[in-house]
Design a protein around this nucleic acid. Sequence first.
DNA 1: GTTTTGCATATTGTATACAATACATCATAA
DNA 2: TTATGATGTATTGTATACAATATGCAAAAC
Lengths: 221, 221
Amino acid sequence: MSPSKIRHLSLSEEIYSRLMRLILDNKYPDGYRMREEKLCAELGVSRTPLREAMIRLDREGILERVPRYGCIIRRLPPSEIAELLECRKMLECLTLREYFNNIDLEAVKSLQLRFEEAIKSGDDELRIEILNTDEALHGLIVSACSNRFLAKQLKDIQMRCRPYRVLRCAEAGDIPSIISERRNILDSVLAAKKEDAVKCMEAHFDASLSYYKADDGSLSS
Amino acid sequence: MSPSKIRHLSLSEEIYSRLMRLILDNKYPDGYRMREEKLCAELGVSRTPLREAMIRLDREGILERVPRYGCIIRRLPPSEIAELLECRKMLECLTLREYFNNIDLEAVKSLQLRFEEAIKSGDDELRIEILNTDEALHGLIVSACSNRFLAKQLKDIQMRCRPYRVLRCAEAGDIPSIISERRNILDSVLAAKKEDAVKCMEAHFDASLSYYKADDGSLSS
DNA sequence: GTTTTGCATATTGTATACAATACATCATAA
DNA sequence: TTATGATGTATTGTATACAATATGCAAAAC
């Protein structure tokens, strides 16, 4: 308990966090095969903690472990991104509905203020602020969820969506509709209109979904 | 591809499955601390594959890994079982509603027949059959869910509930209401009455929940 | 020229050795 | 007698050595 006693994490944990961050930030190309020895050299650890980290990341869907082959980083094809987002939409809207009254309205209020402020600023600034707003809003929903099991599942799937979220925003051209999507959600929540908020959230997800559903070429000849 | 070529699983995988089964069948007492070397001797492997299996089991909530201490088997206190069941209830009812039309009605039909048959038989026989019916029915809901991400989450949480499910049934005295609970669900599904089925399913979960909510002494002095 | 087979190499899976830490026991002092 | 600290043991965390398997290339057979 003494402040000087630094509780340093195990190497496994540290490597897990570092790899998680690297992967979620798209530092590795699609299909990248992670060679254990190579990664060990880069990260400065032996294979044991690295493998332990990889097992955890695999269980969380962050990477894919193939027996007798190794770990590969695989970006989901559009159809599977859509599937992932559909799942997140269901979970997140469920949570929003069930735990609507737990939402920290003060936090939403300040979020709204900051968002409205950003809308007045430049385009690039706004794009970044949209990402921040999204992250904060979805985080507030998780925070509102007092069921820890559901909260964890929601958190996990939000994390898995992260690699695709950035791209989605960068490619989206229609700024006004993007703004109103968020604005409607914030307004409904602050007005304590639960079903409206859920509907807006569904629309919000559907907007993202339309990109991936449209792009899905897996079944078209 | 030759039939003689047996594709044997890695030790990690094998140990993972064996431990999973042992734990879910309540072979270890509550609070049991799993010593690595001891388990290694019992299972006939070295620590490496054992630890890898344990990491996976920890991520799935089957056991609890405490840094610098080890793995412990912990049965959830009633309040947390209730929380777990609440989460499962939300996920399973959501799935039932969203994928209602995908349910294999033929399978439900034969399930119903077998169930009605069992009701006529003896008490012990019936208890076992109730467990089988439950497992099959909840499995059919998972099967109906074409979203693989949601299906996996539902499957995982169903598995986590397993250690408690058996006890729940063994302690439940009110057989007639237990029967009608299931019967109502099966009937609603077969009658294609979605909202009825969801309501019956909710009631089904609430019946289980009442045990754990009532037993929760964590806040009572 | 193509295919197949065998060998060399690279890579993952597993066991073991070593390091760091936690735990328990016992001795000693207040 | 109790509290406290030192010390030895047990246990987890990490590195490395070894085994099994897959991969790639080259040579030989067809």
